[in-house]
Structures are given as structure tokens and as C-alpha cells.
Design a protein around this nucleic acid. Structure first.
Lengths: 220, 220, 220, 220
DNA sequence: CATGAATGAGCTTTCATTCAT
DNA sequence: AATGAATGAAAGCTCATTCAT
């Protein structure tokens, strides 16, 4: 599943060739990591010669950046498409999580590129990767904030108000939990997107819900 | 902070030199990643010549494995030392989380080696890395299970019982949330270990607590 | 004589470049030995960059093996081409020896690769080298055995019969004598292939001849 | 057999230590070849530290030269001790050959150093190695010449006279045959020194004998 | 007498990248 | 539109050799 066909067809329009190359690149980067992936392997998997890869995508760095962008866009769109604005906050979150788990399960290499390779600190596209993570976190932050606004009775507002920084922290925690759960579900196998989403909702939503109502856990 | 002093002192006993090398290696691996880190850089940072690194630590792979082991041991011990067996489940978890956030904040490079480089799939020490993650997850799984046993009134037991797989999933989610939160706290700065631990307890504990009592969230 | 031209001509077809590289490799291996020969030197002598050598011939080991094969094939073919099946046993042997001495005199580096480097015991291609020696010895063994069958009057057969192991030993001795003589002729200079062949025939043939007739030398 | 004991006994007199080192060196050089043998391995096998090897034997090159000299001396002496001046030429040669085969079978590593590693052309001690071969060849040349003088009736002298160069060539051939036979006997196993000597006498002596009597083989 | 500590230099190998066609 | 030919630069690793004790 997801393996790129390497039938070497000649004379394809540029756009198609580019997609083939990026498919091969995502697969290779996802499985090997940025440094360990070689342009040779990518070109061969794409069924083209190396110079063509350079002609179309300029450099390994740019190729990787393009992969990040494409996969991030695909994931974001999948999640956003699933979140219907009219629903209640918890339903929105559930739908988003379910879409997230489904998409990552269906595109493991793409997800690997986003998730695993996101840590390539010293590399020159670190900024690009960081930006993607920010965007996703911001999206979730928005969801949580919206939920907070919506789900809490005005009377409780003052006490319950979550500091902005706390919301950001929660978003990070949620994203991390989802990522980790997705990886685990992928490796373990047999865990459906719905189950993962349910598990995470149970784990986190009740906590979020209470938080928004002003309840707090504290040592002692 | 954490930068290794590179004063080139000659003729040190082997044990000391080995620690210096591993310090340098952790720093370099943590900041660059396994592949991007070069033995030259590590040696220079350690203030020794490359052959000495090989003489003492045999190969890049073994060096990395040794780093993984050292840092994992340090983190595990820090967490375990903080968790007093006599305490209640939530206090235990809070203490563990606080120790975790404190340790990772104090050893960002070591944490990076464990967390970020944990994804080096094709590399030959992947097993080592995976084992570490398993251990940590197993530890957390144990905590959750213990909490479940302890915190739930016998009457509610039957309904509330969490499937083993769910507990494992929850542990993964919790670890992921903690990891992500730790990374965010580190990057953002100004978020103390106590705050992070509190945030995560609020986020997750109440959920766990409810789960153990048999309450469930479900879409509609 | 035999020195490879290092005119750096660009953009040659692969087959040509490969031959150039192998020429350079044979020369270098022959003069320096396997371990002492460096890929740098081979590449420079071939007039190409090192990566190209690796691109075409994969590794030092494979390159050496390829050299062994090429030179062994050339030598074997030269000898076999000279041995006309119709001739008498002694004429066949003389022709073979003459071709052997001529070929080795004309290709001293190739001969060195086969002869001198044949002793690289610990190296991973030792098997390859050993096989070549076996083949040559087997070829000579065949010649001697054929001569024995042909040159001996049936009446003398029973006594004269040479044990199989003795034939093999004789072949080894003959090959060793030829090798040593070839090396000496090469170094000394001024000794033609015909002279060497004649010397060895005088030295060995009469002995073989007598042996086949059942005459034996024994101490006392 | 021949394996050096590596019991690490301290404070030995220099002469003993030197012999231990050379034993280890001969073994290592013999099995690995000059380049592939490492001073580390030799030192370890000798049960001493590397600096001590350097203190006593100065360099790898000198160490190897010392090995060549020691082993060549041992071999030469073994052969010379076996050749009693009073005997007839053929008995002398048989005795010498038998001693040669016996000694090389008993000291395979030493023999390997002399025989196999003798081909290290580019190395700086090539001269040393060459000298040894010259000496051996000269010794044999002497034997053959003596035999020629002694074994031939004065009347036949004029025609039979072997050119000096031919004698040298014959010596080379004989040495090569003996070397090759010795190697084969060693590898094959189960071939005694006496058998080898007999085989070679049968192979070569009759030829030499006839040669000295003026008989010649010639094509046609 | 003996060694643990240390290194400069070199080796094989790989890779991103570019020409010339 | 596409590629076979080619390389500069760097990485992992090893080794003969030397101090300082």
C-alpha cells in the first residue's frame, strides 16, 4: 500500500512527473529519514534520472520542503474538511481527531515525513518544519479556544478563563497525544481511526471540559 | 547551558574521557540528529582526536547506543526516584510528571536524543531505541493500571474495567502528550516543570479519573 | 612498457572507461599488492575520479576480483590457443610453456596480480584467487596425465602408472617451476620465451618422460 | 602448532621478549600478510604493549625485516645442516630437499613470510626479500654446478657444459618447483617431506642428470 | 622494564550535484 | 523532455607511531 509504481514511462507532462517524484520522495524520506534518503534512490523509485529530479525540484532540500508542504496541506485539509462548523465543540473535535487518525493511517509515509522528520534541527529547512507544526498547533488551539468559549456558561467565565498560554500548552499536549497514539496505532495494527479518536476523546475531552468549567486538579 | 567545556586537558583517565566523549556525543546527536552528526564534530567538541573516540567507543553506532542507554537510564531514574510508592495514584503521577518535565528541561540534548532521534527507522540500533520507548510506556501503563485498581470503588468495577489495550493506548497518549509538552515548554521558555505537570494533570488526569469510574464519552 | 596512458579524455562510453580502470588497477595491484594499492592511485592512473571507479566497479574487492578474472582468462586463453590438440604430448607441453612465458613476459603486471597477489590469505576474495590457481593446476595436470597415457607403451603400464596424487604434485611442481622461471626471466631480462620453455622442457620433460616409463629415482 | 602462547609474564630479559615478539610477528605476518598485519595484533599476541615492540624493534618495517632474516637463516641452516659434503650430488640434493620440505612443513608461518610475502614489491624492504631469494637460489645454483662438475665424465665435458645462465635458470626453476610443492603439500596435508623430496627428485633430477650429460630436448 | 593515553595521516566509501548531449 | 557521464567534498574508520609516567 502506498508503494510507488516504477514503470518507466517516457515523455510525461511535467506536472505528472513532479507528482511521481514527490511520491517517491515522500516514500523514501518517510522510510529512511532525510539524511539517509539518497537522491539516487528517489530518482530510481520515481523511474526517472537524477538530473530530471534536479531540473524539476532543484535540490534535496527543496524537494524535502515540497514534500513537507504537500503532506501538511493534505493532512490539514483532511482534518478541516471533517470539521463541520455547525457542530458542537466536542463533536468537532471528535470529527477532527477521527479524520486525523484516518488520514495518517492511510498515508503512513507522508505522516512519517511530517512527524518523525520534524526533528531535524540542524537542517536548513528546520524553519519550514517548525512552521508546519505551529500551524497545526494553532488550528487545534483555535478549536480548544472555541470550545472553551462555547461550552462554558457565562456565569462561570471569570474563574474558568484559561490563560492563553495554557490553551497553547493544551494544544501541544493534545497534538502530542494524537501523534503518539497514531504512531502506536499504526505499529500495533488493528486499531481503527474511530477507536483511536474515541480513546483520545475519553482521555482528553473530559479533562478539557472540566478545565473549561473552572475545575482544577492540584497537588494536595 | 549544557555546552561541553572543550578545554583540551591531556592524559586523563579513561573513564573521565569516556564521559567527556559521551557528553559531546549527546550534545551533537541531540542538536544535529544521528546521521547529520559527524564523528569529527563530536571528537572536536570532546577535545580529543577521532581515533580516541573509536578506541574507547568503537563505532558511531555503539556510541549512539551508549548515549541512548545513558540518557534513558538517567531519565528513568529521575522519574522513578520522584514517585514515592506510598502516595495516592494521582500524587504519584503528578510527582512523576514533574520529575519528567524537570529532567528534560535540565537535559535538553539528552532528551532530544531520546525523543527526536527515536525515529531513526532504518538504522541498526532502532531496536535499542524502540526498547527504551517500550520501557517508558510500560512504566506509565503500570501507573495507570495501578491508579485504576486503586482509585475505583469495587462496586463500579465491572463496568469501568478498562481493556488492557485501552490502557496501553492511554499510556501512549500520555507519553506523547508529555513529550510534546516538554518540547514546547523547552522551546517557549518560562514554563516551569511544575506548571507543565499541573497542566497535563488537569488535561489528562480528570479524564483518566472519569474513565476509571466507567464514564465514557461517545459521539452523541 | 605497459604503462597506462593517463590522457584525461572526457565523456567516454562506459565500456571503454571500465577497461581503462581495469588496466590501471592491474598495473597498480601488480606493482603494489592488494593492500598497498590505493583506490586513489588507481583512479588517478586511470585518469578518472574515484567515485567513477566505485560507480562502475563497486568496491576495491570487486575491482580486484574483476582483475583476477580478466587476467586469468587472458592467460588461460593464450596457453590454450597455443596447444594444438593434434601434436604429441611433448610438443603440446612445449607450445603451452612457450605461450605461457611469452604471455607473462608481455603482461608482467597481470602476471604479478595472478602470481604474487595469489597469496592474500586473509582477504575476502581468497577463494577467487585459489580457484584460479586450481584451474591452472588442473589444466596442467590434464596435460601431464594425457602425456602419460599417450607416451607410455602399454606393456609398461602397470608398473609405470602414476598415482593420481603424484600427478597433481608434479603439476604443482611444474607450475611453480614455470612461475619462478618466468619471474626470473622477467627480472633478468634477455631471456626469451623460447629459451625459458626450452630450459624447462629440458629440466622437467625428461624427468616426466622417465617417470612415465616407470623409472624412479630413489635414495640409495 | 606454532601458536604463540600469550601468557603475559612480566619482567623478562630483553632477548626473550624479543623472541616472543618475533614469534608473534612471524605468525601474524605469515597469516595476514605484511600490510594486513597490524602492530596492535602483534603486540597483543606477544603479550606486550605496543610501545615495547617499538622500543625493541623500532618499526613495522624493521620488525618485518628481522622476521625475514630470522626465518631465512633458520631455513638455510636447516638445509645446509642436512647436506653432508661427502655425499654424491644426487644424495646431497635429496637430503637438502627433504630438509627443506621438513622445515617448511614444521614452520608454516615462517615459510609463508619468506614465500608469500616475498612479493611485496612496493614495500621498502623489497631489497631485503630479494636478497634472501638470491641467496637461496645461489646456494642451489652451487649444488647444481657441483653436481654438474662431479657427475659428468670428463670426456663429455665440452659439449655438456651448461651455460652459467642456464644453471641459474635451472636453480630458479628448481626453487620454484620446491616452493610450489611445499605449499601444495602443506595445504593438501598428508604428504610427507620424504614423499615431496622423492617426487621432486624424480621430476627434476633425471632431467638435470641428462642435461649434464649433454642430452637436450628440442622442439622437432 | 613497561605501559596507558593519544594522534596525524590515510583509507574505502558515499552523496549531492552538474555537464554535455 | 530527458539522460549517461562525471566529480568535489566529506564521512566513518584504521593504523603506525609517540609521549609522559
Amino acid at each position: 500500500m502506498g508503494a510507488v509504481k516504477s514503470v518507466r514511462a517516457k515523455r510525461m507532462p511535467r506536472a505528472v512527473r513532479e507528482q511521481q517524484m514527490m511520491d517517491a520522495a515522500v516514500q523514501t524520506f518517510g522510510q529512511r529519514g532525510y539524511r539517509a534518503a539518497s537522491m539516487d534512490e528517489i530518482a530510481e523509485l520515481a523511474g526517472v534520472s537524477k538530473p530530471l529530479v534536479y531540473l524539476y525540484l532543484n535540490s534535496k532540500e527543496e524537494l524535502f520542503t515540497a514534500c513537507i508542504r504537500r503532506e501538511a496541506k493534505a493532512l490539514t485539509e483532511a482534518v478541516q474538511a471533517a470539521v463541520e462548523p455547525g457542530l458542537s465543540a466536542d463533536r468537532q473535535m471528535w470529527a477532527g481527531l477521527e479524520a486525523f487518525f484516518r488520514h495518517t493511517a492511510e498515508n503512513p509515509d507522508g505522516w512519517s515525513v511530517l512527524h518523525h522528520q520534524a526533528c531535524t534541527h540542524g537542517e536548513p529547512f528546520a524553519a519550514e518544519v517548525a512552521k508546519m507544526r505551529e500551524e497545526i498547533a494553532a488550528f487545534v488551539t483555535g478549536l480548544i479556544a472555541a470550545a472553551a468559549r462555547q461550552g462554558v456558561p457565562p456565569a462561570a467565565h471569570r474563574d474558568a478563563e484559561l490563560a492563553e498560554r495554557d490553551v497553547a500548552g493544551l494544544a501541544q499536549a493534545l497534538v502530542g497525544a494524537a501523534e503518539s497514539l497514531a504512531a502506536w496505532a499504526n505499529e500495533t495494527g488493528g486499531v481503527s481511526a474511530k477507536e483511536s479518536a474515541g480513546l483520545l476523546m475519553n482521555f482528553a475531552w473530559t479533562g478539557l471540559d472540566r478545565l473549561m468549567r473552572g475545575e482544577r486538579w492540584s497537588p494536595q
